[in-house]
Design a protein around this nucleic acid. Sequence first.
DNA 1: CTGTGACTTGAAGCGCGCTTCAAGTCAAGG
DNA 2: CCTTGACTTGAAGCGCGCTTCAAGTCACAG
Lengths: 138, 138
Amino acid sequence: MAESLLDIAEVAERSGLAPSALRFYENRGLIASAGRNGLRRTYRPDVLERLALIACARGAGFTIAEIARFLLATPDDTKLRAHMAKKARELEEDIARLTRMRDGLHHASMCMHEPLVECPDFKRTFESSATLTPSPGR
Amino acid sequence: MAESLLDIAEVAERSGLAPSALRFYENRGLIASAGRNGLRRTYRPDVLERLALIACARGAGFTIAEIARFLLATPDDTKLRAHMAKKARELEEDIARLTRMRDGLHHASMCMHEPLVECPDFKRTFESSATLTPSPGR
DNA sequence: CTGTGACTTGAAGCGCGCTTCAAGTCAAGG
DNA sequence: CCTTGACTTGAAGCGCGCTTCAAGTCACAG
């Protein structure tokens, strides 16, 4: 009945992560193994969904610790909900910044200014962000 | 005539960066000082624009080395242009990921599933990203 | 029973982006 | 002239997210 469990190597291959990374995640509470086959960790197939979520979150700039907190969330944890909502708002800013950067790069990749960084159009892309977000960490 | 130059402390305060970070950036070729007043670095005011650009690029996931390369770009550097265009495309993916994450978080912040991570709507947000981008680095 | 070889562990190491530190230097004020 | 104090330097240190390493253990093939 334990036939559907995945070996760590299998999870590593399917997820594109190194086994060491999986152990690291387990250590940090992001994933749980379903048991062992000898010394080998085995995982339930749904760990792959979990890993996809983690990859997405990591790519969105969340730290391992933050992800761990979010994964433990229950509906009555209002503090955490607030934290999530705040993060969602921060993501809006990040998206705006990435969009600006993308536009700037796109322009730069075909602008003829020498050097490119002096191009007024290019500069204009960034002037709205003159004052930094005093964001802690990141 | 050098009246308009800014002292490093002034630049630090206005940009929100630590003086050590400014020295670090100078060391890496991201900015240049206009000279010294005694030992003290002085900068032309336009360094602030430059720093805003750098902050934006950093926030968009560029490494210091990448930014340095981009800042030296000239219109005839076709390789670098290609690199820029590629980066712009990668940013599209990043934006998509951040958007998904934002939507997921937004939903999670008011979903009633116990635990939140098991919510099917929440999961659906990420299922499209089942296979990881095998992006190097980041 | 004996290899083989992929896993296990905890600890150390690495690359990045700075920060901190020890030791030194300078401009300005008294 | 001497002190003050913010700067200077190069080098070391730090936090994060893993990776690598040395040493050990297990399942399975022969």
